[in-house]
Amino acid sequence: MLNRLRREYREQFVDNNRLERISLLAKVDFSKRYYDNNLGILWALLNPLFRFVVYYFAFTYIFENRIPSFALYLFCGLITWMFFAQGSKKGITILKRKKYLIENIQFNQIDLFIAAILAGLYGYAFNFSAYFVVSMLYGTPIYLTLLWLPVILLNLVVLTMGMSMLLATINIYLRDINHLWDMVVLAGFWLTPIIYDKSITMEVVPILQYINPVAGIVINLRETSLYGNAPYMHLLIYDWAFAIIIYAIGSMAYRKYAHMAVEKL
């Protein structure tokens, strides 16, 4: 069984240039966004930082909150949400943007999605390490529960990947999804405990965290990295299940309808 998996993996990734290709596409994708700007790659940090400052002031001085170390709390939630929002948003238009490749060369187009997620991960990793450094400066110890991080982050990646495939497929037939998704992202931002306390989604309106899987991911990220608690198991399991289902639907829909992309877009 294990041998078969290993062989499969080799055929898929090692015995060809697929890994190289994905990393190249990701690199190009990542750097292109900041190419023409004078500040270049700094924007990857400046954009969330600026949002952070705005929300921080608004929710410290205009609306008060009683969340301890609010800055870290906010930043962790914000960058995680932005990774999901931007990743899924980019997924919608990816086939159109890469039409020039799809139209002219035969290749496995899933690579485009993997590369886009990878490019988003570069920025997220950048921000996440900033969060980590600052949290250490604040005096947060290095908890053993950090070992949960890969499990939670992978959950986020699977969810974002599945979502972008699903949205890309929908966009082939329903161009309105672009605008619709903007609204979903806006609503999702406020339905995720980013700027308010997690008790609101966990106790006051618990259904929120089941509608929106990112809520649970954000909560568990904070529990493990900021407070040293084990993740909430029911959220972890629910969010994984949610992510896997979205991924399954997304990749199935994509496989079935992606061949219409060039004709329709």
């Binding site: 060809n16 240039n17 190289e20 290709r21 190249l24 596409l25 490749l101 060369i105 290749f107």
Partner: peptide, 10 residues
């Protein structure tokens, strides 16, 4: 990008 997609290694 093009050559890589065509299957060439770096």
């Amino acid at each position: 990008v093009n050559a890589s997609i065509l299957g060439l290694t770096f």
